[in-house]
Amino acid sequence: MLNLLRAELLKTHVRPLGWMLFGLSAIVPTLFMLLSRAVAGEAPVGPVSWTSGVFLGPRFIGQLFGGLMLIVFGAGVAGVEYSYDTWKNLLTRHSSRPALIAAKWCAMLLCVAGAVAALGALSLVAALALGLVDPGLPASPGALALLGGLAVQTIALTIYGGVALLGAVAWRSSVAGIIAGFVWLVADSLLATIVQTPAWLRAALFIVAESDLYRHLGLVPEAPLRPAAASAAALAVYLGAPLLAATLIFGRRDIAGAG
C-alpha cells in the first residue's frame, strides 16, 4: 500500500494539473479578498477568520471555489488512468483493485492536507502583513482553532474530491467525474440551504453543507454542538461512502481498453 501511495504521489507531483489548481487556489481567493476589501471597505470574515487560511474565507471562496478545485483534482486523480489507458499497466502489476483506489484516495487526502496547510500559512503571512497597515482587521484565531480550521477544510475538500473520484471511476472519464462532482456540489448546496432536513436524514441522503462540518467539529460557536457520535458517523459516511462505492464499482469492472 505504501508503494502504491508513493506511485500516486509521484504522478500527482509531476502532473501540471495539481500545481495549476494550487496556484489558482492561492491567487483567486487572495485577489477576491483584497478586491472586496478595496470595494466594500471591510475585511471579509469567514466562520473562523479569514486569517486562518484562504479556504476559510468567505463562503463563496471557501466552499464553492475550493470545492470546484477539488472536484477537478479528484476527478483527475482517477480520470488520468482512463485518459491515458493506463489502468492496464497498473492492474497487470498489482492484484488488488481496492488497494489501487484506496491509494488514489489517500494520495488525494495528503495533497489536500498539504495544499490547505500551505495556503493557510500563506494567508497567515498575508494577514500579518495587512495587519501592520490596518489594525482594524479581525484578530487571528489561536493555534488550536487554526489547526482545527485547516482540518475541517481538508475533510470538506476531500469529500468533494472523493465524490469526483467516484464519478470518474463510475463513468470512466475525468470530465464525467467533474460533472458528477459539480452536480453533487450544487445539489448539496441547494438542499443544505433550502431544505431544512434533520441532520440524520441529511447524513443518510449523503448531503453535506460545510457549515455542518464546522458544527460537527464544534467550530461554529453560535451553532449547537451535535453529539460527537452523530458527527463522527456523519463524517465517516461523507468520507467513506464515495470511496466504498468507487471501490465496489471498480472491482467489478472489465478494463476493456481504448480499442
Binding site: K11, V14, R15, P16, V80, Y84, D85, T86, K88, N89, T92, R93, H94, S95, G257, A258, G259
Partner: peptide
C-alpha cells in the same frame, strides 16, 4: 503477477 510482464495492445503511458 509478479512473475509476469506484459504489453497489452497499444503502449500506454502518462504523457506528461
Amino acid at each position: 503477477l509478479p512473475r509476469v510482464g506484459a504489453i497489452v495492445e497499444a503502449p500506454a503511458f502518462y504523457l506528461f
